[in-house]
């Protein structure tokens, strides 16, 4: 039983790492814009497909293709924000929420139309797991995923605490009006948030496609879990959602030892409800 628990905990950390990357951006948008950007999930799919195009169609190395995919997705995310969300900001968070739902459906439809029927996958070798004490514990791909997630956390921490733009972001997240009054360029910070959030979504999408497949539903199926992780950690708390995402990943994957795998999402939401009953503002109580 201990072996099984260990295996599932490790994969839970992998799941949580991908979720973390997807949720950071979602939470940053909420922190600065005060609305739930449902279309964030579709950026995962865009990231995976753009990478696929360079990697498989053009035959580029997966790393370079991934970098291009992240850049393109960032620009798409910024364009959507500039073209659709920012003009709607004056109408309040509810209008923004429904706009993002509309954007989600449009992007999903466009992706389905362009991508066509085929299920696709990256050309990466599948290797046996690394065994620890005779137990197949973790694969190289999974080590890469965890490393990228950890690297992203460190990078974001450095950005938020050591750079001017990071400090300005925290000031804006705390109080937009006060930040503007103190001369902070909120438009520039907004641009940073959209680009960074979209880039993280793209990375999450690429890594998710690496362990599953590239398909138009890739991000569509993740957005509710992203929402659950953000609420669990505490909406508005960047560090809270990081812990929330890892915790959710581990609980979902350990949970399938006891429940059928189809109930993973149910496990996630059950945990979210239990936490909200005890701590209505999430574990780290952002909003």
């Amino acid at each position: 039983m201990l072996t099984i628990l260990l295996q599932h905990t490790v994969f839970g950390i992998v799941t949580g790492s991908i979720l973390l990357l997807a949720t950071i951006g979602f939470s940053m948008i909420y922190t600065t814009k005060r609305f739930l950007c449902i279309s964030h999930g579709e950026l995962l799919t865009i990231g995976a497909y753009t990478t696929y195009i360079f990697h498989v169609f053009l035959g580029w190395n997966l790393l370079y293709s991934g970098v291009i995919g992240v850049v393109i997705t960032s620009l798409v995310g910024l364009a959507i924000a500039r073209g659709l969300y920012e003009p709607m900001e004056r109408h309040g968070p509810l209008v923004l929420l429904f706009t993002s739902v509309g954007v989600t459906f449009c992007l999903h439809g466009i992706l389905e139309f362009i991508a066509g029927p085929s299920i696709r996958s990256f050309r990466t070798p599948i290797l046996p797991s690394i065994r620890v004490g005779g137990i197949p514990l973790i694969t190289m791909n999974e080590i890469v995923i965890i490393s990228i997630a950890m690297g992203s956390i460190v990078f974001l921490h450095v950005v938020l605490t050591r750079t001017r733009i990071g400090k300005a972001f925290r000031a804006m997240a705390s109080n937009v009006d006060l930040a503007m009054a103190r001369g902070i360029d909120t438009a520039r910070i907004s641009m940073f948030v959209w680009i960074y959030a979209s880039a993280m979504a793209a990375v999450a999408g690429i890594l998710l496609a690496l362990v599953t497949s590239v398909n138009p539903d890739l991000g569509w199926t993740q957005i509710l879990i992203i929402l659950a992780a953000a609420i669990l950690g505490g909406l508005g708390s960047i560090y809270g959602v990081m812990i929330g995402a890892i915790l959710l990943g581990v609980v979902m994957d350990v949970g399938v030892i006891f429940f059928p795998s189809g109930y993973r999402a149910a496990i996630a939401f059950a945990l979210m409800i239990i936490v909200l009953l005890v701590k209505p503002k999430g574990i780290f109580g952002g909003e």
């Binding site: 295996q7 599932h8 994969f11 799941t15 599953t212 994957d253 399938v256 059928p260 795998s261 189809g262």
Partner: peptide
């Protein structure tokens, strides 16, 4: 029995 659309089927 498994459900589609999951990211893992390790169990």
């Amino acid at each position: 029995m498994v459900v589609g659309g999951q990211t893992t089927y390790r169990t």
